[in-house]
Nucleic acid binder design. Structure first.
Length: 495
RNA sequence: GGCCCGUUGGUCAAAAGGUUAAGACACCGCCCUUUCACGGCGGUAAUAUGGGUUCGAUUCCCGUACGGGUCACCA
């Protein structure tokens, strides 16, 4: 058994195998996350294998610790892989830089098979572009017609070379994409692309084809920017005599109608979103629906767990047109996820954030969390909602004037003055007892509840908008602090 | 510029020849209410455009416009 046969023998058959092949950039684009998710879902849906392959051939872009970021993100999202650099598998290595030697062998094999040829043209020969005419210059040279034996002699003699794909000049190539359907192009539009560079390393397109085949990948999921190189892939598979995988091209995630989301333009990556206080589950759920939609009876359903998606995900639901990322809808969806959290789970997430603005140990953070759980969309909203608890902010008396509650500066002052002794005389300091006492006071004064409660809420919070009503805030702040703030309010109104 | 792909409300999108063209976000209004919110109810808003094919086109075909992708010894 020769080398190539050995490699073939390793390839698993009879199962769906998909792969996510990120290059280690140090963060996860939203678009990449979606691709990873779809790729994972296809594997899970068919009870197949999901493979993680690190594409680190671009040495110039290497980022320290970036591979760990990939592991961490995938694990955090629940996109577990069955094979990869860290867990191994039958078709390793799973890091592209460790597969380096493979590609030269396969490129030479392809030359033997006639699908490629040695090319001795110097890079500088074709450096000139089409210039102002805008014409694209395709590489055409005599090396293509060099007899193989002669070319090999020159290689052995040490002459620098690249290996280029031999693309037929005539005819057309048709490839099939699971969501775009059949696409046919004229072969004359295709260039004899370089497969193996003069430094002996493969180009991305070549490495991909070889790796995907040797790893037994059945479904190639990738961005639609690769759509136009797909015919060349097909020709490559055919020249090798390999089975062509199912292509699943996904349109990009856009910032607006004409721009892809990009880190460079300040669009958030997955890590940015998490840092801003979005929940992983919400991000995944939202991203799943960006460019894919469920069919049939699920068409109106929007909330899914990962495992629910794994049951119903269907390639045919992938959309062909680009989708604009709507942070607004993500916010809404995140809020829904927060509301669904158990009080304990929400507290666990909220506590660290609350602690950044509430340092008073007398404050019951669980009570704060309970109040705020249905009133925030993302965790980073929290500080601004509860910062008044530690310290009463300076506020304008204008806050006391509220038409709907029928409050004015004058009746606010008298309300607070009436409230003060009630609070001071209150034995039991709970939301219920506070509410009962103050409603009774309003009845006694013969005014609407709000005439009493609105000014109190303002006095106690100094804010127009708070995570709870007057009595809830008083209960939270405690008797002493509440009374102090009411007195401060009275003083302010008396000025 | 050549080639390829796409186009349903502001956004995500359903409807795979016959529907009053779903649903969700956002927006607006009303109700609830101890603020804001939550919740409930309701509303505004779309098949890019011109031709075909068909008894009938969002759906099929062609053109146009607009948008995107691609045309490296980058991935």
């Amino acid at each position: 058994m020769d080398f190539f046969e050995q490699m073939e023998a390793r390839i698993p058959h009879g199962e769906v195998r998909t792969r996510f092949a990120p290059s280690p950039t140090g963060y996860m684009h939203v678009g990449n996350l979606r691709t990873a998710l779809y790729t994972w879902l296809i594997a899970r849906r068919h009870h197949g294998k999901f493979i993680l392959r690190i594409e680190d051939t671009d040495q110039g872009r290497l980022v320290e610790g970036a591979v760990d970021v990939i592991y961490k993100t995938m694990a955090e999202c629940g996109l577990t892989h069955d094979e990869g650099p860290d867990v191994g598998g039958p078709v390793g290595p799973y890091v592209q830089s460790e597969r380096r030697d493979l590609f030269g062998k396969y490129a030479k094999l392809l030359c033997e098979k006639g699908g490629a040829y040695y090319c001795f043209c110097q890079k500088s020969d074709e450096e000139e572009s089409g210039g102002e005419t805008g014409e694209i210059k395709k590489h055409v040279c005599a090396c293509r017609d060099l007899p193989l034996e002669e070319a090999k002699k020159r290689v052995e003699a040490g002459e620098p070379f690249v290996i280029r794909q031999r693309i037929p000049h005539e005819g057309t190539t048709t490839f099939h994409d699971a969501s775009f359907g059949d696409i046919t192009v004229e072969n004359k539009e295709l260039e004899d692309q370089v497969l193996l560079k003069s430094d002996g390393l493969p180009t991305y397109n070549f490495a991909n084809v070889v790796d995907d085949h040797l790893m037994g990948i059945t479904h190639v999921v990738r961005g639609s920017e690769y759509l136009s190189s797909a015919p060349k892939y097909n020709l490559l598979y055919e020249a090798f005599g390999w089975e062509i995988p199912t292509y699943v091209h996904c349109s990009p995630v856009m910032r607006d109608a004409q721009h892809k989301m990009s880190k460079r333009h300040g669009d958030p990556s997955y890590e940015d979103l998490i840092r801003e206080g979005y929940l992983t589950e919400a991000v995944l759920n939202y991203v799943a629906l960006l460019g894919w939609s469920p069919k049939g009876e699920n068409a109106e359903r929007e909330f899914y767990t990962l495992s629910e998606l794994a049951e119903i995900f269907d390639i045919s639901g992938i959309s062909k047109s680009p989708a604009v990322f709507d942070i607004n809808k993500l916010r809404w969806m995140n809020a829904e996820y927060m509301k669904k959290l158990s009080p304990e789970a929400f507290f666990a997430k909220a506590e660290p954030v609350l602690k950044t603005v509430i340092t008073n140990p007398a404050i019951d953070l669980r009570a704060v969390a309970a109040l705020v759980q249905t009133r925030c969309e993302i965790l980073s909203d929290l500080p601004e909602r509860v910062d008044f608890i530690d310290k009463l902010p300076e506020y304008s008396t204008e806050l006391y004037v509220h038409k709907k509650s029928k409050t004015t500066l004058e009746n606010s002052l008298s309300s607070l003055q009436a409230v003060l002794p009630v609070l001071e005389g209150l034995e039991t300091w709970t939301n219920e007892s506070l509410y009962d006492a103050l409603v009774a006071l309003a009845a006694k004064l013969e005014v609407k509840n709000s005439v009493v409660l609105w000014p109190l809420r303002v006095a106690v919070s100094g804010k127009a908008s708070t995570p709870g009503g007057a009595t809830e805030l008083c209960a939270l702040l405690g008797k002493e602090e509440s009374i102090a703030r009411v007195k401060a309010g009275i003083a302010l109104l008396q000025k």
